[in-house]
């Protein structure tokens, strides 16, 4: 039993899991506010990362400026997507909405491959030191930054929903759209805002992953990995999304450890979250923190 390796993997899992948590959180934000299951969440990461990479390499912008421009772009992009594509579909059956987001996801994935190529492109180096030693564990500086950013975002989300006016409006809309409207909340603005915030927050995760692994179409896989996390936590729970993300991140890495040390099946890392997903759906479909659908006749 290689304790050191296991510990290292668990720490990695927590850091990657925090990123999953951030993406899951922005996924839940859209679902809660506008009842749309966004299968194109991974493409937000992809587009954010590519745009930032393009700004940094082509125009040699400093990292922070490039990131700010990327955020502005994602803000506009999220709003545009909601207004142009999703708004006409309000009130359509769930399959239409799901299929539209799937269609968007294919479209943008192919578009990114066309514009930026299929090969992983590395970000220009951002930190002087590649990795630091903490308690005998080798941790990349970028991972530390990513953990910091993730925690900051989660805190930001908590503050936003607890105290800010817009956050409260969003919660009211999620609770009951008609009541919210009667209180003078513009539901249309809330929907657009949810998409904008979600796009921006996802792009942060995209940029962080891009710095660590290079930018490639593999980023959109995060959009799929998000499903085990949100189902585990419950589809409409922000806290659940974060916890689900952490659990899935750790689970992946532990699966990799078990696979590498004992089983040697290979590729277990990729597939374990989906088995977990099926098991959760069989025994507890509404997740740990989700609201049960109660149907009255």
């Amino acid at each position: 039993m290689n304790t050191h390796l296991l510990l290292q993997l668990v720490v990695n899992g927590l850091i990657v899991g925090a990123l999953y948590g951030v993406v899951a959180m922005s996924f839940v934000l859209i679902y809660k506010a506008s009842q749309v299951v966004n299968f194109a969440q991974g493409e937000f990461l992809l587009i954010g990362a590519w745009v930032c990479w393009w700004l940094l390499t082509t125009y040699q912008l400093p990292f922070l400026v490039g990131m700010a421009v990327t955020f502005a772009f994602m803000l506009v992009f999220g709003i545009a997507l909601q207004v142009v594509v999703l708004r006409p579909l309000i009130g359509e059956p769930i399959i239409s909405v799901i299929m539209v987001t799937i269609g968007l996801s294919i479209f943008f994935q192919a578009l990114c491959k066309w514009l930026f190529g299929v090969f992983a492109q590395p970000f220009p180096p951002i930190f002087q030191t590649q990795s630091v030693q903490i308690l005998g564990l080798e941790i990349q500086t970028v991972y530390l930054m990513s953990l910091g950013i993730s925690v900051a975002m989660m805190a930001g989300f908590a503050w936003f929903f607890q105290y800010s006016k817009h956050g409260l409006a969003m919660r009211a809309t999620a609770f009951n759209q008609q009541v919210a409207q009667s209180l003078g909340i513009s539901v249309r603005n809330v929907f657009a805002m949810a998409w904008a915030i979600s796009a921006v927050v996802s792009s942060v995760a995209g940029i962080v992953v891009g710095i660590v692994n290079g930018v490639s179409s593999a980023l959109s896989l995060y959009g799929i990995k998000v499903f085990p996390a949100v189902i585990l936590g419950g589809l409409d729970s922000v806290v659940g999304a974060v916890i689900g993300g952490l659990v899935i991140g750790v689970l992946e890495n532990v699966a990799q450890y078990v696979d590498g040390q004992y089983l040697h099946w290979g590729n277990l890392y990729e597939i374990v979250p989906f088995y977990v997903l099926v098991v959760i759906l069989m025994i507890k479909p509404y997740g740990l923190f989700g609201t049960r659908d109660i149907e009255r006749v």
């Binding site: 594509v85 006409p88 579909l89 359509e92 239409s96 299929m99 539209v100 799937i102 269609g103 968007l104 996801s105 294919i106 479209f107 943008f108 994935q109 192919a110 578009l111 491959k113 066309w114």
Partner: peptide, 22 residues
């Protein structure tokens, strides 16, 4: 980039059909 164009076309027709001819 023909293969990407094909994928884009697939995604686009799905979105357009759902918007205009559901």
């Amino acid at each position: 980039n023909l293969s990407f164009l094909r994928e884009m076309a697939i995604g686009l027709v799905i979105v357009l059909f759902l918007m205009f001819e559901p």
